[in-house]
Write a protein that binds this DNA or RNA. Structure first.
Length: 453
DNA sequence: TTTTGAGTTGTTCGA
DNA sequence: GTCGAACAACTCAAA
């Protein structure tokens, strides 16, 4: 019945609330395909790649009846070949708005259209796809709050239910490659695990989200980020379960909107994945050379001598994930205390993070570095000690990831150099003096400003 | 075109 | 210990 069509999975690894898949299934039997594109492996990082491959295995087993066709190669070639083998006449996929995805999809569209195949990009990975929310004069927003108002008014579809799909069986598959070795303890995969976690969040953490989300020792966030990254859940599904009247849930809704805002910013200004959004900040003095390399390495390993920074960096290595509050603290430390270019920190995050999303990651870093949209004022420099005391008052977060300090009490753990019994010898002394580096950052900013005329 | 109000997440200092 | 002001203008977005 109907023509055979290909459904090309990319960053939408789910079968529920899947408009693109529904559109494919309405045409006829569906060949579910995932293309192991060589360029996919490189930027992904081992943690994210491992999570993606396990997610695909779960999707295949739980929802595709084991019919997933995995092929290695260039998407245009692979999809063309499969179409030839199966007699498929059309390819359906969820639209991808990232810089790489756009280039790839344009090429695939051109190549396959030339071969007489239909290519349909449907829906997006966002409640409101990038390039839709505009100011009154038709330009993209550069400030979150007005974007948020406009985005809310724009609205989005309700999630759709289960779809009946006739999967095409017996198509040759290269099979999933072995997941790369990773020492990180990654989250459970699959739509079921994701939705169970979200239900847990709604029941136990959403109410206190406003406060608890800032406390890294508390399990107070939804932890949806890896699932959103691969489209295991769609933001529509989360928004539909959020009560807009409750304070905590309102705040959560804003966090979803931040993800959409940054996707929109990156879509409009793709070069900001690598360069300052605010070009007046491009010439900010940063440190290079051996000393900067040494400090950067100490930051990566979690050996800066500032407990909350080291706990965060070690959590990243251990779990491929870091609590959001701590991401800001360690980013501020790298940029404002170590004077290292934000792009180096952002790259390290992308290499490690299981939820690494180019738009959110790069623009989160730009916000901290003061180079981005709505950037924090230059004088807003996080003090790692007071941030530690304020958001990890018991010290439990530090204790979990920095065992050398486990014996210190709450009063001393965020400044072990003051410990009455002396600083534990296994833990490094601070590699820089925060007060002095803060002054240095302010002076660098003053010098930059003086060049603006 | 001009005006007006507002802008994620902080720190320090002095009263 | 608590609280408000200063930090420094600038750009954005809508009226």
């Amino acid at each position: 019945m109907g023509d055979t069509v290909i459904f090309w999975f990319r960053r939408d690894l789910r079968v529920r609330d899947q408009p693109a898949l529904a559109a494919a299934a309405a045409r006829g039997p569906v060949v579910p395909v995932f293309v192991m594109d060589d360029t996919l492996r490189r930027p992904a990082g081992a943690n994210r790649l491992a999570f993606m491959l396990d997610t695909l295995a779960d999707l295949d087993e739980a929802s595709l009846g084991g019919n997933l066709v995995v092929r290695n190669g260039r998407p245009a070639d692979v999809l063309g070949d499969i179409a030839e083998e199966t007699g498929a006449t059309a390819i359906y996929a969820t639209d991808d708005h990232g810089p790489y995805g756009r280039r790839r999809d344009d090429e695939v569209g051109d190549t396959l259209s030339a071969r007489g195949l239909e290519v349909h990009y449907v829906d997006s990975n966002y409640a409101v796809a990038p390039d839709n929310v505009k100011t009154g004069s038709g330009t993209a927003y550069k400030v979150f709050t007005p974007f948020y108002r406009s985005w809310s008014e724009f609205g989005w579809a309700e999630p759709t239910g289960d779809i009946d799909v006739e999967w095409v069986t017996g198509v040759t598959s290269d099979g999933l490659p072995e997941a790369p070795e990773t020492t990180a303890d990654l989250p459970p995969v699959g739509e079921k695990a994701a939705m169970e976690r979200f239900e847990w969040f709604l029941e136990h953490a959403a109410e206190d989200y406003d406060d608890a989300r800032d406390r890294p020792a508390v399990d107070g966030t939804s932890k949806m980020s890896p699932y959103l990254k691969w489209g295991v859940v769609h933001p529509r599904q989360l928004l539909a379960k959020i009560d807009g009247r409750k304070k905590g849930e309102q705040t959560y809704r804003k966090e979803i909107a931040w993800r959409e805002f940054y996707a929109d910013v990156l879509y409009t200004r793709p070069e900001t994945a690598r360069q300052a959004f605010n070009d007046k900040m491009t010439d900010m003095e940063v440190d290079g050379g051996d000393l900067a390399d040494e400090r950067f390495d100490a930051w990566c390993r979690g050996e800066t001598g500032y407990p909350i920074v080291d706990a965060g960096m070690r959590q990243l290595l251990a779990e491929g994930w870091m609590h959001n509050r701590v991401r800001m603290i360690v980013a501020s430390f790298l940029v404002k205390d170590l004077h290292v270019d934000w792009t180096r920190g952002a790259r390290h995050f992308m290499e490690q993070l299981v939820d690494g999303d180019l738009a959110s990651n790069q623009h989160g870093w730009q916000w901290v570095a003061g180079t981005g949209t709505d950037a924090s004022p230059y004088f807003r420099i996080f003090n790692p000690t007071s941030q530690g005391k304020k958001f990890d008052p018991s010290g439990d977060y530090v204790r979990q990831y920095v065992p050398e300090l486990a014996s210190l009490g709450a009063k001393e753990i965020h400044e072990p150099w003051t410990a009455s019994a002396g600083q534990p010898s296994s833990y490094p002394s601070p590699i820089v003096d925060h007060a002095a580096e803060r002054e240095d950052s302010l002076e660098r900013y003053d010098r930059l400003k003086s060049t603006w005329g």
